[in-house]
Design a protein around this nucleic acid. Sequence first.
DNA 1: AAGAATCTGTTTGAAAAACAACGTGGAGGG
DNA 2: CCCTCCACGTTGTTTTTCAAACAGATTCTT
Lengths: 224, 224
Amino acid sequence: MEEYFAVIRTSRLFRGMEPEDIRSMLTCLGARRAQYDKGEYLMRAGGKTRAVGLVLHGRALLIREDFWGNRSILSGVEPGEMYAESFAVSGARLAFDVVAAEKLAVMQMDIERVARGCSLACEFHARLIMNLMEVMAEKNLQLTGKLTHMARRTTREKLLSYLSSSSRAAGSAAFEIPFDRQQLADYLSVDRSAMSTELGKLKAEGLVTFEKNRFTLMEKAHEA
Amino acid sequence: MEEYFAVIRTSRLFRGMEPEDIRSMLTCLGARRAQYDKGEYLMRAGGKTRAVGLVLHGRALLIREDFWGNRSILSGVEPGEMYAESFAVSGARLAFDVVAAEKLAVMQMDIERVARGCSLACEFHARLIMNLMEVMAEKNLQLTGKLTHMARRTTREKLLSYLSSSSRAAGSAAFEIPFDRQQLADYLSVDRSAMSTELGKLKAEGLVTFEKNRFTLMEKAHEA
DNA sequence: AAGAATCTGTTTGAAAAACAACGTGGAGGG
DNA sequence: CCCTCCACGTTGTTTTTCAAACAGATTCTT
């Protein structure tokens, strides 16, 4: 494990913990290492797991296959990121396969030991638990946010929802977004050109001004 | 608090704990009760909170207002359900207002004390933490599932995604869905009549058969 | 600085979805 | 048994999205 300690130390899960504390935690958690070759399956959809995984090296893919066999890649898991934690915690059946995209090293921890605290009642455990909950909470907020935009029917409404919420997050009517046009279109799940057209209309109507990634929402003065 | 103990006891957060254990936990958590009249605000969008709330009686609404003042109700919180837990855990600014829909009684617990364990290191704390994580994990899975359907561009694809995943969840090509047509349309955020038409096409193409809420996915035999 | 690649905004015809209005049949109540 | 209500499907119209292509602007490379 020592080989990838740098990854572990900088991971979201162990954030705020000292190296020596992390080392003692690892044994306390019964963390074990596993390796996979490209294309090997770590987990199968439909199965259950009690293990929280952390990618140490390489990249894992989350792949879903529908009833008719159409495959789609849900996301990639990079070093330092966790996978399958929601399934481990809830005990639900996996909704996707986890596959090694390349030579892969992971660390697995039993969710029971993460959540229950070790017999030593080590004080770092509370920190670890809080970290895990934070990760889940943040993912939750991200998903919720995205969902509120995507629930809108038209591209225009999705845009307004997204921009409005970005403005709120920035605490200002003027703000920058972390996407270029194509990425924004992908994020909102709309067509780029249609979105571009819609942005043009919004600008013409005086609801928004923008320049590259910098947007400013305008108070609707009064109707024409 | 005793007045609403039945609600607390059957809530998801305290699931699997004995009444006497719950009682000792409550003091251990520094749980406090609050009451609100209809229309009163419990929390404001943009603020922060370290408190996890649990509705004891009445109903709370999560309300979002966009930059131009358009209001929308995100959801209602019923007795026994938690609210704002993701914000309390992550420390992020609230993305919505929480308002009493009617006369409301809630219980608030400090997230630190929930996650950190009390000085007594009571053994039920691990259970509580696991329960809280389970709730978040399940919500996470729900959101992820819904998002994968909604990310599809067309009504047809949304339907296929939803049905496929329902089939997997049921472990069978035949299954029932918990929605009527209007509810399904709302869930997938599409027009009901258009969805109905699309269902008709899918049936005509032999991909799906259905009768009311009972659906069966069909192996695509061979192309015509 | 020239050239290549990328990003962005436009346009267009074709496809799809949304919308609105209506018809049907079944469930439940009087 | 009749009536009403509601879920569901159908149809025709309007609106939006999609896909492809193109040009101007910007950035990166050589």
